[in-house]
Design a protein around this nucleic acid. Structure first.
Lengths: 120, 120
DNA sequence: GTTTTATATAGTAAAATTACTATATTGTGG
DNA sequence: CCACAATATAGTAATTTTACTATATAAAAC
């Protein structure tokens, strides 16, 4: 009951939209998921997730601006990690959703019908 | 521990990104929150949320394409409602996050610093 | 001091999103 | 049939995102 008991403030809506939109990119979800394991360097992300280095830096910059990740520098290495627990919370929430869908507990399996009807 | 135990499939990452990106818009969050109360017509959303009618229709269309909302027609009225429970789940998750932030349980209050540093 | 490694940043073209205006569609009441 | 109400859709300009190439920076190794 989000709408009734817990009244969502306009500021929160703005911030939530910002966070959700930022997480709404496959590469960034992968990076966040990867960072859940612990801090990683840009190179590790670049190599292990098979993404181009400037792309990784760009995503990390965006996520840093949105306070999703932090980093500390050691020499030429930049170690990035998740800035907030709530990011994990959101990811875990999405995982729960996946589990429900995988187990067939929910009627609607959008993973098999996602390009059924599309905007022109 | 999303990354370790529950391995996220590539398809899920795509779908999750799609859902999160779609929810990453203030107006759409407001609409979803409003629909949590029960099904509403386009006019209700338009009037009560103070949004232009074509904008509302446009958002609803996008969310319908992403399987976030459904509708049924009665005469000239279109009654929209949330298509899936997991949408509520995600919103509730965001609400929990808000509560933690409001209660100061988490160190980081991004709601007061969100425009501290920005991309050029 | 020159090269190499790690990463950030600049610049940019293509694609997607957004917000708006105007109009089409469809049902309803006279 | 005519007007009206509710909503969808078309068209579009402005903005944002994305992905890429090239380059700058800075530390480390030689």
């Amino acid at each position: 009951m989000v709408g009734n008991q817990t009244k969502i403030s306009p500021e929160f809506i703005q911030n939530a939209a910002r966070i959700l939109k930022t997480l709404g990119h496959p590469d960034r979800i992968k990076i966040v998921e990867f960072l859940e394991d612990g801090e990683k360097t840009v190179g590790q992300i670049h190599r292990e997730l098979n993404m181009q280095q400037p792309i990784v830096s760009q995503h990390l910059k965006v996520m840093h601006d949105r306070f999703i990740v932090t980093f500390h520098q050691e020499g030429t290495r930049y170690f990035y990690s998740l800035a907030n627990n709530f990011i994990i919370k959101i990811l875990n929430c999405m995982s729960e959703v996946q589990e429900k869908l995988d187990s067939g507990e929910w009627d609607f399996d959008f993973s098999t019908t996602s390009n059924q009807k599309e905007v022109a």
